[in-house]
């Protein structure tokens, strides 16, 4: 094990070499996974249109019920926390939606799951944006370049995720979700107000990532459309990868669970607030 007093030193791999590796991986992503997901979402949009026509999306299914009950305890805890939270940590990044628009009315079934997912992705984007802005303003002390890259890349991926879910909503004739999860947002804002360094920011991001991953895992059981399941299944591992890197950076074991839990999944009732 490395000596605790050892000073960090420059690595043998150069920035250019690593950037080239990252560029190759990004190209693979653009060539392979992104088109596949786009196709999947397009097919799901078509399926939603068909189901809307026949009024098949109305009513709560057993799967929807399962998602709602999966996170009841956590939801209650966060609601309690919200009750005592009146703070807003960031004056530079809006949470809750730039336009103040409410969630699309009367969403049910898969479309409500898509709206919840979009609101969580928006919250992740908000969190990373606020963190990057705080770092840029010098509020977090010295921020290593690798941390900046992590935050900007993770934020970009969350924007991709939000766009995918919003494509499903707009494809079904609904409006985009531009708000952040209304129950979780005040909790995250309250936590962000206490962030003073990179470690605090990483801990906050970990909270968001683990919640998102758990919600997608729970959502897999709640979605009725196979295409919707495929979309959630393609995103859950990415959120957990973000979480693993954050754990590693925080000096915690990066893969703590042999089976990923759903205890921190957000319920659909978040959108009823």
């Amino acid at each position: 094990m490395t000596n605790k007093n050892q000073q960090p030193r420059e690595l043998g791999i150069s920035e250019a070499e690593l950037a080239a590796m990252t560029s190759d991986l990004d190209q693979m992503h653009r060539d392979s996974s992104l088109p596949a997901l786009t196709e999947s979402v397009d097919e799901w949009v078509s399926a939603n249109k068909d189901e809307e026509t026949s009024s098949a999306l109305g009513g709560a299914s057993r799967r929807t019920f399962l998602l709602g009950t999966g996170a009841a305890a956590v939801g209650g805890l966060l609601l309690a926390a919200c009750g005592s939270s009146g703070s807003s940590s960031s004056s530079t990044t809006a949470a809750g939606g730039a336009t103040g628009a409410k969630y699309p009315a009367n969403l049910t079934g898969d479309l409500k799951v898509a709206a919840l997912a979009a609101s969580l992705e928006n919250l992740a984007v908000y969190t990373y944006t606020a963190g990057i802005q705080a770092a840029t303003a010098g509020k977090l002390g010295t921020v290593p370049p690798a941390i900046v890259t992590f935050a900007t890349t993770a934020r970009s991926q969350h924007m991709d995720h939000a766009a995918a879910w919003n494509a499903v909503l707009t494809g079904a004739g609904k409006t985009k979700v531009t708000e952040t999860d209304p129950v979780l947002t005040p909790v995250i804002q309250k936590m962000f107000a206490k962030v003073t360094d990179v470690t605090g920011l990483a801990e906050l991001a970990l909270e968001v990532e683990e919640g998102a991953g758990a919600t997608y895992q729970s959502g897999i059981g709640a979605l009725s459309s196979p295409k919707g399941v495929a979309a959630a299944a393609s995103i859950q591992p990415v959120e957990l990868q973000h979480a693993a890197i954050l754990l590693f950076v925080l000096g915690q074991y990066p893969v703590p669970n042999a089976f990923s839990p759903t205890s921190s999944a957000r319920p659909l009732t978040d959108l009823n607030t």
Binding site: S32, S33, A36, L37, Q157, H161
Partner: peptide, 8 residues
């Protein structure tokens, strides 16, 4: 560590 927005 995480090259893909959507897992392939």
């Amino acid at each position: 560590g995480f090259p893909d927005s959507f897992f392939p």
